[in-house]
């Protein structure tokens, strides 16, 4: 009630603003970081499974495996964090009204990201990317930016949703 009154008066007279400052400039959101992290997860899973084909692992192979697993987990977590930031900080009621099912989609990404951390099943990576691409599509839709789906020009050469800019 009081917000409505003040909002109406604001339109007429324009109240001064008081900034609830953040420590970083707000408004910079881009799902590409989560897409790159998801691609990294797929690549790490591929490389881990290449190692799995070897009959025996040398010490160097074991060191490499350890590094690949660590990177896989780190980037799966990064996917979750980056998506959470956009969902939590950027999406407001206006954006939720523009695209439906975002909450369920984000929850699916959280679950799939965890799956990627927990296992080395190669099917989990592309599924994560698929969900993150859907999230990117939803994000760009709220910005009124068209998207295009193209194969990324580097391994793991997967379909990625890009904004159609310029």
């Amino acid at each position: 009630m009081i917000h409505k009154i003040l909002s109406g008066l604001d339109k007429l007279y324009g109240f001064r603003t008081a900034s609830a400052h953040c420590d970083v400039p707000c408004g910079i959101y881009d799902p590409s970081t989560s897409q790159i992290a998801a691609l990294t997860v797929i690549r790490m899973l591929d490389l881990i499974n290449e190692l799995a084909e070897k009959e025996t692992l040398t010490i160097a192979d074991q060191a490499r495996l350890s590094r690949l697993v660590s990177q896989k987990e780190e980037h799966a977590e990064k996917v979750k964090a980056e998506v959470r930031i956009i969902w939590g900080d950027y999406f407001k009621q206006a954006q939720f009204d523009q695209v439906s099912g975002v909450n369920e989609l984000v929850h699916s990404i959280m679950l799939q990201g965890s799956k990627c951390r927990q296992t080395i099943d190669q099917d989990n990576g592309p599924e994560l990317l698929k969900l993150v691409n859907q999230f990117a599509e939803a994000f760009w839709q709220t910005k009124g930016v068209e998207t295009v789906t193209a194969t990324c020009p580097y391994p793991p050469a997967q379909l990625v949703v890009y904004p159609k800019l310029g």
Binding site: D10, A18, C26
Partner: peptide, 16 residues
Amino acid sequence: SVFKIQGESMSPRLSG
């Protein structure tokens, strides 16, 4: 005076 809030550093108490 009346002030309009910009930003989210006072959330959840106050929002933009």
